[in-house]
Every structure is written in structure tokens, then in C-alpha cells.
């Protein structure tokens, strides 16, 4: 079974986020594998294994031919990667991103495409479903458990009130929530092996996509302002001296909650 995993490479979320002069997210620093996607990578490796083998191919769109995050995922065990990098993609919206990913994914002819339900930095949560629509694939989003038997994909799909058991047939796309599986730590051997695994670097032209239709040129949207949100005033902070609970009780009484 051939599996493609969409992996986003993002600025380290531990660092404070920055905006560029044109108000797009500053992605110029070092990028890392989005933790959300580490679940997808793990899931793909496990599913390929359970199906008796097959390649796990990573697909990523990132600026400046960034591969650091891809190397992490390759070290976990993915076989190879396709990276799309193109200056024209700065300012790309979710639909543009999906168009680029879909074109790249097609090359790998997957039976299954795995993505995360939402990225840590963009969290639009629409890219996977858009990719599926562009590829004409059925999709099951918000998966918390995935099983494949023959051509059937069975998913426990998160809902507001619990979960649904949803089924579809391969080829298909599944987007997984965080916490579904425990992402493995790359072994030393894995890290060494990752250095020589193939990363196919593509431009928009290589994919046959007209640069005028994606990125800020084709996004159909424009940031007009970025303002500071009204800050919430911090209130009283007290050290618990054994009577801290009484402060809470008094506060609740004052609000007439009790």
C-alpha cells in the first residue's frame, strides 16, 4: 500500500510568532516538522506496516527549499519526500496550498493520503478536505482511530458528542487528530539513514501550475490590517497560605454563583 503523508514545516511554535511587513506569517527562520503531522507520519507508517509494506512518501510545501522538518519525518521511517518550494507561493491561502499539494500527491499515486486535521500555525483545518476534493477522493476528517482491511478504510471520527464509525473505500484521504498514536522518536540509525533518502524538489513550473493562479497573485484575499487585540486585565494573584480556597469561595459568593 502506498501512503502519502502531508507534512507542514512550520516556525518553532515555542518561539513568539512574527509577521512580515506584508502581514503574512514570517517563515524565514528555521522550520520544523509540525507536531500535528508527526501523528500522521506515525499513523502512515503503522498502516503501511499492517498492510504488509509499501512506501510512505512525504509531501510538503515550504519556502526556501526547507527540508529540516522533512528530515525528521524521514528519520521516523518515511521512504522519500516531495517538496514544493516556489517564491510565487508566498501569501498562498488554504485553497492555493491544497492545489499545490494535490498536484504533488498525484505523482506518488497513493492508495491512501494522510494529513493532520489542522496545522499548528495556520489551523484553517480545510486543506486536507480541499486536497481530497481536488483529487476526487473520498475523505474522512477528524479521525481518532484508523483501520484498513482490504479496500475498506474504517475510521472512528471525532464528533461534538462522541464519535462516529465511518467507512469508505480506497483510494481515500484521512485527516488525523493529535494524540491518535504515539509518534516514535527517530533512532540514531534512522537519523543517519534520513540524510540520504531522496527529496524530490519541485517548483510550480515542474507541477505545471501557473504562478499567477496561486500565492498572493491568485489568493482572492488581502490582509488590510493587523491590530492588537484588547488585552484582558490581570486581576489579583495571591499566594495560597492555606486560605486560598476561601478567596475563591468569597469571589463566587460575590458573583452570586453560590
Amino acid at each position: 500500500m502506498n501512503v502519502v503523508v502531508c507534512v507542514k514545516q512550520i516556525p518553532d511554535p515555542a518561539e513568539p510568532g512574527k509577521l512580515e511587513a506584508d502581514n503574512t506569517l514570517d517563515r524565514s527562520g528555521k522550520l520544523i516538522l509540525d507536531e500535528s503531522d508527526s501523528y500522521g507520519v506515525e499513523m502512515a507508517l503503522q498502516l503501511a506496516d499492517a498492510a504488509g509494506g509499501g512506501d510512505v512518501t512525504l509531501v510538503s510545501m515550504a519556502p526556501n527549499n526547507e527540508t529540516a522538518g522533512l528530515r525528521t519525518a524521514l528519520a521516523m521511517g518515511a521512504a522519500k519526500a516531495i517538496l514544493v518550494s516556489d517564491e510565487a507561493l508566498s501569501g498562498a491561502g488554504a485553497l492555493d496550498t491544497a492545489k499545490v499539494l494535490a498536484a504533488a500527491i498525484k505523482r506518488a499515486e497513493p492508495d491512501l493520503v494522510v494529513a493532520a486535521t489542522e496545522s499548528s500555525d495556520g489551523y484553517t483545518g480545510t486543506v486536507p478536505e480541499q486536497v481530497a476534493a481536488l483529487l476526487g477522493l473520498p475523505s474522512i476528517t477528524f479521525a481518532k482511530h484508523v483501520e484498513i482491511s482490504g479496500e475498506t478504510v474504517s475510521v472512528q471520527r471525532q464528533t461534538e458528542l462522541g464519535y462516529d464509525e465511518v467507512e469508505t473505500t480506497l483510494p481515500a484521504l484521512v485527516s488525523v487528530t493529535a494524540g491518535v498514536v504515539e509518534p516514535r522518536y527517530p533512532s540514531f540509525k534512522g537519523i543517519m539513514a534520513a540524510k540520504s533518502k531522496p527529496v524530490d524538489q519541485l517548483s510550480l513550473a515542474d507541477l505545471g501550475i501557473d504562478a499567477g493562479t496561486v500565492g498572493s497573485a491568485g489568493a482572492g484575499q488581502e490582509i488590510v490590517a493587523v491590530d492588537d487585540a484588547p488585552a484582558r486585565e490581570a486581576g489579583e494573584v495571591v499566594e495560597d497560605d492555606g486560605e486560598g480556597y476561601a478567596k475563591i469561595v468569597a469571589y463566587l459568593e460575590n458573583l452570586k454563583v453560590i
Binding site: A94, D96, E129, Q130, A132, L134
Partner: peptide, 18 residues
């Protein structure tokens, strides 16, 4: 999110979330 994402492809329109 699922419906809006599919619709954005069908109509070739951008979608802004959150």
C-alpha cells in the same frame, strides 16, 4: 469545515476560517 472546504474547490473560491 468539511462542507466549506469541498465547496471552495467546487466554486474555486478561497475560504477564510476561524
Amino acid at each position: 469545515r468539511d462542507v466549506a472546504a469541498r465547496l471552495s474547490v467546487a466554486l474555486d473560491q478561497p475560504v477564510i476560517t476561524n
